[in-house]
Design a protein around this nucleic acid. Sequence first.
DNA 1: TAAAAATTTAGGGAAAACCCTATATATGAA
DNA 2: TTCATATATAGGGTTTTCCCTAAATTTTTA
Lengths: 215, 215
Amino acid sequence: MIRVLIADDHNVFVEGIESLITGAPDIKVTERCYTVQSVIERLGQAAVDVILLDISFPQVDDGLGLCEHITRSYPKTKVVALTMHDDASLIKRVVKKGAKGYLLKNTTKNELLQAIQTVYHEKQYFNDTIMHILLNEGPKTRKSTAGVGVKPNLTPRESEVLTLIAQGLTTQQMATQLFVSAKAVEFHRSSLLLKFGVPNTALLIKSAMEMHYID
Amino acid sequence: MIRVLIADDHNVFVEGIESLITGAPDIKVTERCYTVQSVIERLGQAAVDVILLDISFPQVDDGLGLCEHITRSYPKTKVVALTMHDDASLIKRVVKKGAKGYLLKNTTKNELLQAIQTVYHEKQYFNDTIMHILLNEGPKTRKSTAGVGVKPNLTPRESEVLTLIAQGLTTQQMATQLFVSAKAVEFHRSSLLLKFGVPNTALLIKSAMEMHYID
DNA sequence: TAAAAATTTAGGGAAAACCCTATATATGAA
DNA sequence: TTCATATATAGGGTTTTCCCTAAATTTTTA
């Protein structure tokens, strides 16, 4: 019997998934969690084989962090990411955090059950839709060279500057806030444009939002 | 018996909602639609009392358009919007399109059933969460004066310019494409900044994305 | 430790965005 | 038919962004 934990802050989803799973002979939903905190608590108390994890939980960063934590602390427990987001960039990030499977929320019952059984048997599960998305987004990012659709790796400083740009600050204001010269800020902004492959800050924000760097 | 149509392109959701509704004595899910097209088809063939409509179907604009179409063509059929988006701007837009209720996807079984019964009896249903969101967003937009969190009404030209900005075009490029002078484009860009209450195009894009003008 | 990556600063310059005032026409509503 | 709105255009000016080359310091990684 495969023990499944459902982690999603959307009530309807938890019910829906459980409803889809009900009837499968070898799978049982043993835990339902609506917050990151409760997931951590339950994992400390009850053994779980597979976690169906909504990445937006409630924010994408939370889900990614939780995914990383789970795969580190409980390597035997397999994480299947379950989201609405169908962008390659997010899929790659999720996989990097240790998820063994990735499903869109418009998945079918069969796919869901198959995914649970596949990851339970130490294999990865990515269906055709996911593979198609990944393949159509060009080569996987190795270093962080420019390229459309490739998720760049940002340095800490770049992340800071990106956040401040998203708050509407000018170069001068950022420089003041970060205690560096305007030229330093300009440099990081340029690096961001290069890494994201965009011509200006407007598209930088758009791209960063689509790739869930900011929100 | 209240006949309910579920319109959502996310399989799991349809199952989840149906599971939540099952057991209610006076409500029955009679139709399940995964595309806008199928909703229109089914409505032409079978009488439905309440539609649970996912606004992101698959894009926000599609859902809004469908909502408007339903309330126009089938005034007896009540629409309850059901989405993940918890921004006041979207709620207002949905209500303007004729929805009689608005639920977040983290709603509970009780709220869901209550919403269906409430709108069926010719009343509007908005729970505390929704009311709180609306109240915290300041006064409802009457004209389109500037203001944070208020959803501006855009003129056709402004929408065009906004779209082009979101594509990374410069003022000159937009002018060429729209067959007007650069000054005209500048004017519309300024109007957009004013209406959205933002200092630059970067935040304009962020704001427009959050308010689902672009995506 | 040596190499690579990240961070910082600098100068100069071109392009674009942003802000102001002003005018004029077309359209639709009161 | 006014009034308001949307649209288009103009001039002039300031600020900001964007691009280039260049170099020094610190941190991280191999």
